[in-house]
Design a protein around this nucleic acid. Structure first.
Length: 523
RNA sequence: GCGGGAGUAGCUCAGUGGUAGAGCUCCUGCCUUCCAAGCAGGAUGUCGUGGGUUCAAGUCCCAUCUCCCGCUCCA
């Protein structure tokens, strides 16, 4: 679909969302709460449309996926087994120079690949024969740009003097390498410090962090059980794997799908609803025979990419990106992200991971239960592999909003319109009397009520201000259709159906209205 | 956490130490009015909060809160 504008600022989207009741800043009357967002009357319809579309395509239309809605608070052992307790509570070190936070155990690796080390290493390898002079020169030149806060750059003479050995030839980011790095990062007192991979600043001592949100189960704090709000819905599917197989007599391959809230103490929330600490996931765990996992992984990557396109996102703003080995999660053998081109850059909408048999094995181990599956063909027990398409409902909705946003010029005036796919649009139609004339209003209300009572779509009624203003108002909400009742309607019992994108109008008998709307909205 | 920007009407913002403003919006009424129309009338403010300087503070000073944008990761 042609668009009048190429890109839109996030600010514009945030402001439109607030103005039209799609998304409000959270707890606003108390001055707001950072990174909390509330879905308003139109927003709740739209988000529900996103989730309905997902559920319809992932569960209802398939015979190999069933649904689940599991408790948000799960047994604490769940998170030990899943690995979240360990990998979500890594210590983090902060850089006072540039403010970045680094997972302490990732720092050596990050330093190994850091821009400033690569630059320094080049210098040392093309040595002039005098390593100390090389260091000094680098500190005065490239080092100033790439690692301005590094001890070596700030106090070259003192740091160089304290070095016992200088070499560029390390095999890996090991202890030896780290010791060298720490010597380069020495502070004003001459004490070795771990430098920041980004700017060279002396990192703080690692501080414990827990990325899971804890709460207390039980009214008396002293005796309460400390539990976690789930950081992902996925574990619910693994924990209920046995139950689902028994209750529904599933055969491999099959999937279990779930939508719901998850919570993470993100270090860097932001970008509107893109990264929040409370968010809604749409996840599906697809269990397959070991050996079939790679084929199914490819299948789901394609399937999920197509889903976004099918519901209105332009192909050129979507891409699939495979994870590098280093960025894989602790449970994953391979992961590909579906990314969307947001105003601030490409960012993940959904991750399609090959989780292998990691989760089921872990839960079998921690629970002592047998989570294997009897394969009728080979007559042996296998632990299924799992392919997981995990999408963010809030992220998907944000992408739909951003992608639909358009401005165009109509008769010298700016027209703002959300060109949402009818399946996603929060309000499907508005019934508008041409004016508030006493003869028009009753008929318009009657038409509106008839559609409302059917309960099929959210349909609005509006008689305030001029007809043009009202068309604009519903364009901003992305309502695909407007139904206008005029004076002629009183005589011929016909109304005008006006299309959002083309602004074209068609006369339709009131008796056929629902059928015509259905054709245009669902056909 | 750190840096940058910003808090004045529902929204966008102006405001030079001296009576709190504009445009849009919103509400009511009128008009047989099809793409942000016109006319008439109307509503809306702890100027983020607390302190200080001053005869006088939205404006100057100090503190504080909050939001937005940017920085290892994830949905």
């Amino acid at each position: 679909m042609a668009r009048g504008i190429e890109s839109v600022s996030m600010e514009t989207i945030v402001s439109l969302c607030k103005r039209r009741g799609i998304i409000f800043p959270g707890s606003e009357i108390y001055g707001g709460l950072a990174n909390a967002w509330d879905y308003g009357p139109a927003g709740v319809e739209m988000k529900r449309n996103v989730k309905d579309a997902w559920w319809r395509d992932m569960v209802l239309r398939r015979d190999d996926v069933v649904g689940l809605d599991c408790a948000l608070i799960m047994h604490p052992k769940t998170w030990e087994a899943s690995g979240h307790l360990a990998s979500f509570s890594d210590p983090y070190a902060n850089c006072p120079g540039c403010g970045r936070n680094w997972r302490a155990d990732h720092v050596p690796g990050m330093l190994w690949e850091s821009e400033w080390w690569l630059s320094l290493r080049r210098r040392l390898r093309n040595t002039s024969g005098n390593a100390q002079r090389d260091l000094q020169r680098w500190a005065d030149g490239d080092g100033k740009k790439s690692a301005p806060n590094l001890g070596l750059v700030q106090r070259p003479q003192a740091v160089v003097a304290a070095l016992t050995e200088v070499t560029a030839d390390f095999d890996a980011p090991d202890d030896l390498f780290l010791a060298f790095m720490r010597a380069l990062g020495a502070d004003a007192a001459g004490k070795a410090q771990t430098p920041c991979p980004a700017c060279g600043g002396a990192l703080s001592e690692p501080k414990p962090a827990n990325l899971m949100l804890a709460t207390f189960l039980g009214p008396i704090r002293a005796t309460a059980l400390e539990v976690y709000l789930r950081p992902e819905t996925a574990q619910g599917m693994f924990v209920n794997f046995r139950n689902v197989v028994t209750a529904t007599r599933r055969k491999l391959p099959f999937g279990i799908a779930q939508m719901g809230k998850s919570f993470r103490n993100e270090i860097t929330p932001g970008n509107f609803t893109f990264r929040t600490r409370e968010f809604e996931q749409m996840e599906m765990e697809f269990f397959v025979k070991p050996g079939d996992d790679e084929r199914w992984h490819d299948y789901w990557i394609n399937e999920r990419f197509d889903w976004y396109v099918r519901h209105g996102i332009r192909k050129e703003n979507l891409r699939v990106r495979a994870h590098e080995k280093a960025e894989l999660s602790h449970y994953s053998k391979a992961t590909s992200d579906v990314e969307y081109r947001f105003p601030w850059g490409w960012a993940e909408l959904e991750g399609i991971a090959n989780r292998t048999d990691y989760d089921l094995k872990q839960h079998a181990k921690f629970s002592g239960q047998d989570l294997s599956f009897f394969d009728e063909d080979t007559k042996e027990h296998v632990i299924p592999y799992v392919v997981e398409p995990a999408a963010g409902a809030d992220r998907a909705m944000l992408a739909f909003l951003v992608d639909a946003y358009d401005e165009e010029e109509v008769k010298g005036e700016k027209r703002t319109v959300l060109r949402l796919h009818p399946s996603i649009a929060p309000i499907k139609a508005a019934v508008l009397p041409l004016s508030r004339h006493e003869q028009l209003v009753p008929l318009a209300r009657e038409v509106h009520q008839a559609l409302r009572r059917r309960g099929r779509w959210p349909v609005e009624y509006d008689d305030a201000q001029s007809i043009g203003r009202r068309y604009r108002r519903f364009d901003e909400l992305g309502a695909p259709l407007c139904v206008t009742v005029d004076f002629q309607s009183l005589e011929d019992k016909q109304v005008t159906v006006r299309e959002r994108d083309s602004m074209e109008q068609t006369r339709v008998p009131i008796a056929d209205l629902e059928r015509v709307l259905a054709e245009r909205l669902e056909g």
